[in-house]
Design a protein around this nucleic acid. Structure first.
Lengths: 345, 345
DNA sequence: CTGAAAGCGCTTACAG
DNA sequence: CTGAAAGCGCTTACAG
């Protein structure tokens, strides 16, 4: 990548027009500092010459402000662009940033290069999405730049989270009708195993903090309030949120003689996989088998049958995080995750 | 947004350690310019002090290189994050950029603010995705910075496009079996009307260049080679690529007495809508009605029935565009769009 | 209303 | 192997 021409600088322009550099700068940044007619002449000349205004680099070196906001994703950018929750969240952020005339730099805490560390010096503020790897969070905190964390907590740092436990409890109470139901759970990243398989009693022992366990405990609490139990054997662990694993997991559950009639899935993708398997086996949803999702991605509504699920409100989360960052709002907000009742349960 | 502390500068560090600023700079950027032991001492001290390396702003002002690449999207960022084709494309780009240690600045040509114009001075290179609005493309061209355009053409500018016509012709030849078939098309952005409605004979007159028309002409050519005609009345225009409009459009077509038995849709979302309506009407896909999509988004495979469609290879397109940019490859590449045969046709 | 001058934090020939 | 000095392109008090 080589540059061919070199664009004119403010200094070049000031010589050409015959006024000081300060005046050119003011023409762009402080219209009140010079006469209207002079300003218009300058702007017109700049257009003619091909000078499109002061460079952001020099400007931000001098003024200490770049008007760039960074989003630091805890997954690789490549993965994040394929994750509907992440892209929803980004969409919400960009709506707010566009209105505030801020630019977006996209970073990933999985990247540890010098180039990335350097890049962190550019933004005026940071939004961390998901608990980051490595030292990026520490560096940002140390820099004193404003920072909002989302989907995790850090002491004394502004944050946005959703209440997974309550939402899952409510969903389970909706989907499970009574003690004669046989509920099951299809969960993600519950244990450290890259096999799709049921978890074991001992896995349930500990008091885990991860989001997936908050959801699981919510399901179990909801089942309990309906008089139903969910044994470890009816809780399937999936390492990754993809259709193929969901299909494998659903086959395990639906091959049982004690076949579950309610499956609580920790993502919409998983629920879509469960629906596929139900269809294969000739089970009607929701008549023979009730299935619930989580996330409320766009596809949830398009699925046949449309999924009953929990809306994570990724878009709103993004809007809120960006607004809080720009307004120096230092709260730690817990958003509600909303039950969305459709056809599948 | 106010900063609290001020991070140490290279100068501060050089005083603290007692070597010149040049040596600190070299410790980070040119390891061969100083002894290994000194370099290690400097790096260790920097870590202790909390200096995370030279600031990108000052560095790029001085060296003229930022290691930032901009992607200029022709839609708003908010829209783009909800568009599976755009996010696939971005995923491909970020994979290449991550490997090359480049950072990503996301811009939209729909934004015309001074802040955005300024931001354009930062990146070392640009990828334009979709024909841009406004002057951004002219400014970038004038700057002489490397630039790749995708999904449109500009004279003497490196580009990546896909062959819409050929792909659609092949798809139509696959889906239409003979002259007794009644094919229809559900297309996007064919005419300037925000109603979902059939187009008219006069709309077919002109020799249009837009992507949607290249696709349409491909369908018509494919139909012709199977001996079938597609009258204007069987070509539905939809202003936007959303499920609701697809459902409206499919209802128009499938309510006809001369009911089409092949529907060629210009996106997978439209095809999914058509499948929904077919299901409502008790029509079996593909037995009673063959439906094809376009794009091959992830959902195409998950749909019931899985969609026969055209893969736009968004990910590969992104990889190629980014690679070409970084390698100063000045070709104008036409990629093949691939027919993907599944269950719906 | 306008301009001369300092300085933001670096990198890079160049001298030693 | 190391350091003194210039300069990247701006903004901003300040003087006039």
């Amino acid at each position: 990548m080589t540059r061919t021409k070199k664009p004119p600088s403010l200094k070049d322009v000031s010589k050409l027009i015959g006024v000081s550099t300060a005046t050119i700068s003011n023409a762009f940044n402080r219209p009140d500092q010079l006469s209207k007619s002079l300003r218009e002449r300058i702007l017109l000349e700049c257009q003619r010459i091909g000078y499109s205004g002061p460079s952001m680099i020099a400007r931000s070196l001098r003024s200490g402000q770049s008007d760039v906001i960074a989003v630091m994703l805890s997954d690789s950018l490549t993965y994040s662009f394929s994750d509907p929750m992440a892209t929803d969240f980004m969409a919400g952020i960009t709506e707010v940033l566009a209105k505030a005339n801020k630019q977006l730099l996209l970073l990933s805490s999985t990247v540890m290069s010098d180039a990335q560390v350097r890049a962190e010096s550019l933004p005026d503020g940071f939004i961390f999405y998901g608990a980051p790897e490595g030292q990026s969070f520490n560096r940002v905190t140390r820099s004193g730049k404003p920072c909002i964390v989302v989907d995790f907590d850090a002491p004394d740092v502004s944050s946005v989270n959703i209440d997974n436990f309550s939402a899952c409890k409510e969903l389970a109470e909706h989907a499970i009708h009574g003690e004669r139901d046989i509920p099951a759970i299809m969960g993600m990243r519950l244990i450290a195993d890259n096999q799709v398989r049921p978890i074991e009693d001992k896995d349930l022992d500990h008091d885990k903090q991860e989001i997936s366990w908050q959801r699981l405990f919510g399901y179990v609490a909801g089942a309990k309030s309906r008089g139903a139990e969910i044994p470890a054997d009816n809780i399937i662990h999936m390492p990754v949120n993809v259709l193929e694993q969901a299909i494998d997991g659903a086959r395990i559950l639906l091959a049982r003689t004690q076949r579950p009639n309610v499956i609580l899935c920790m993502s919409d993708i998983i629920a879509i996989g469960a629906c596929k398997v139900a269809d294969e086996l000739g089970l009607r949803v929701p008549e023979d088998l009730r299935i619930t999702g989580f996330d409320d991605i766009a596809e949830a509504k398009r699925n046949q049958p449309a999924l009953t699920t929990i809306s994570q409100q990724g878009y709103e989360k993004g809007q809120l995080a960006a607004t809080m960052l720009l307004e120096n709002d230092t709260r730690q907000v817990m958003m509600e995750a909303k039950l969305v009742v459709r056809d599948s349960a």
